[in-house]
């Protein structure tokens, strides 16, 4: 776990407005997404977040961060 469960939940919640409005922003650059596509995109994004959060940190990285502390 890179972040606490609570923080993860909140981060996932933060993606909601991004996903909702991403479609509008993309429409300005003429990328039209359907509802389904943006939903899939959203689920994908959340999946990436979960993987990022749950992936065990490499030993190297952990020591590095320990040093900077």
């Amino acid at each position: 776990m890179r972040i606490s469960k609570g923080a993860l939940l909140v981060v996932i919640a933060f993606t909601a407005p991004l996903i909702v409005e991403l479609r509008t922003v993309l429409a300005w650059v003429n990328v039209e997404l359907t509802v389904l596509e943006s939903a899939v995109l959203g689920i994908g994004l959340i999946g990436v977040l979960l993987v990022w959060a749950l992936w065990p940190q490499s030993q190297n990285n952990a020591t590095e961060s320990a040093e900077t502390e």
């Binding site: 606490s4 609570g6 923080a7 939940l9």
Partner: peptide, 8 residues
């Protein structure tokens, strides 16, 4: 921001 008590 990560150090805040988000679980609370």
């Amino acid at each position: 921001l990560k150090a805040l008590p988000w679980r609370d």
